[in-house]
Design a protein around this nucleic acid. Structure first.
Lengths: 122, 122
DNA sequence: CAGTATCCTTTACGATACTG
DNA sequence: CAGTATCGTAAAGGATACTG
């Protein structure tokens, strides 16, 4: 159904997986987007919610997500300054489509863990 | 709805995103799985279908996908030897859940490209 | 044909220190 | 508070050559 063959530059540019999904399937992007599901969060709150992410990497990923339009960044100059991040329409739409996949992953986690153990065994 | 906070090792181990999805959202895994959607393919066919992937990287990703149970590897000792890869039940189930996301990405590709251009502009 | 083996480059990520 | 700056590590990927 989808053309995944890609040898020319045009084919790569038109591949939704390479152009769109590759930017949201890193180690942190999904976690960040899901963290914003229940409403806007400030930088520090976001960092605490995701848990084990460094400031540098969080900033980096927030910029990527903002660039693609999944979230917006709002600055309230204080002092002290307060920056909050919120999902855009695109971001909410994205999360609606992402969640079934996350639910599937949670459901199949046990089976996949078994498969790995069996494969690694002797 | 999902707990994405993860500070302890246990929380990370039980996070479906980190444990399951991180292994299928690399640069090539989705393309490989989608390439097998219409039926089994041999190594060389798979390589030609995906297009610009090297032998080394294709092998590497096939092993990961086989390990998690998304596809099976069947060897027909020739000579010449013929190895074919096919989706398993899990792989087909996965692709059914993955496709809506790919379709979403294709649909929103233009908007996201605009967002990027606007962000990068001046 | 279907891989391995090597070597190299790029990208992501991590740790820590510093600043308006 | 919300970053930036620097430095270092590790994983992914790319190029090329070789093999049962």
């Amino acid at each position: 159904m989808f053309k995944v063959t890609a040898v020319t530059k045009e084919e790569v540019d038109n591949c939704p997986i390479r152009q769109v999904l590759s930017q949201v399937f890193g180690k942190w992007q999904m976690l960040i987007v899901l963290a914003l599901e229940d409403g806007p969060l400030r930088f520090g709150e976001l960092k605490r919610t995701v848990g084990d992410i460094t400031q540098r990497v969080l900033t980096e990923n927030l910029r990527k997500l903002e660039r693609d339009g999944y979230l917006s960044r709002t600055v309230d100059p204080g002092p002290p300054v307060a920056v909050s991040y919120a999902l855009t329409k695109l971001g909410e739409d994205w999360i609606d489509h992402l969640k079934p996949v996350v639910i599937w992953a949670a459901k199949n986690h046990p089976e996949i863990a078994e498969n790995r153990a069996a494969y690694d065994a002797p």
